[in-house]
Amino acid sequence: MRLTVRQGLWTGGPDVDPPPLAAVLEVSGAVLEWTVDEPDSLPRITLTDLDAADWLWRLVGAEGHARLLEADSTTPLEVDLDHEALAPLRRLALGHWMSRWWPASARDGIVALDGAVLGAELAVLTAALEEYFAEDTFDSDVDGLLAGLAGLTSYTADPRVADLLDACAELGDLPDIGTTPTRWRADFALVAGGDPRLDPSAALASGTDSVSWTAVPPGVFDAAEDTVTWSVAMTGPAGEGLVARVRAALTDPAAGHPLSAGIRVALRSGDVAAAGELGADGDATLPLALTESAAWNHDWAATSIRVGVGEGETRETRDRVRRFVRTRLAAPPADAFVAEMLAADDDF
């Protein structure tokens, strides 16, 4: 791999696709990135602090590491990477990725991962790679991962989970497992997703749109496409106000989600625009500054609903992620996470 200094930081490796396709890991003095569905690719390495990256010799050899420490920042440097040493780092990055981007969906039939089980495995992996975390980083917090075990409510009898818990007990002090009832669970399994479409008969116009994953927090929404339904109608007994009603399908439509409340939602349809916030049940009512007759004359075909913040990613990108996890669920690879195997079991 060729390393060059860009903006003051040694950088090397292939370009990585942007989120949600990037699996990243922050180790002491460096950020490592991989494109999630390219298992054989080399990582993109960005050295944020060369002195803090005292593990580099494990990846590039003592010679390579020493040359890098002495290198002149204007000259690129070639190093050989140890693929075996990279494998567990990539796996840890992938696990972190799964905890945030796994596209759980009742509609798509993609079973959610148990967050507590995944967290336990990440804690064990992190501790096993402690030489890469000499300095505290965003990903070095084993105790924080162990604290997540308080939310472990199911699977406790599974021998694979029991093994994980034993390994965790070696790492530190575990919380009382399964005694704190969680008010909310990300791992809501296949709840029958009743179609919450609004009554189309009363509407002037209606349609669907999709949630961009990068625009919203994880665990809140069903990750399928076309889960946002909208309709435009008059409200009030005398039909005095024109509104757009929007509903976004949540991971758990029955219980709502504490993070759903306050998420921004915006409607755009030609020169008509409206904005508001979702409630805890995933619903929003956006007032439209339009008369009824103007609304009848408006062409609603090109209406788009944006949930959350920012530009978001394309449907093709999301499909790539779905393909990736479906392939893993259908045939769990040798290094599959326990949480994945549990999800694959549940799939049948």
Partner: peptide, 20 residues
């Protein structure tokens, strides 16, 4: 780079808050 890690972990939408 460290702020990008937040985006890659779905904790920020690019450079903005993902949630109020």
């Amino acid at each position: 780079k460290e702020a990008y890690v937040l985006h890659a972990r779905r904790l920020l939408a690019d450079d903005q808050a993902l949630h109020p």
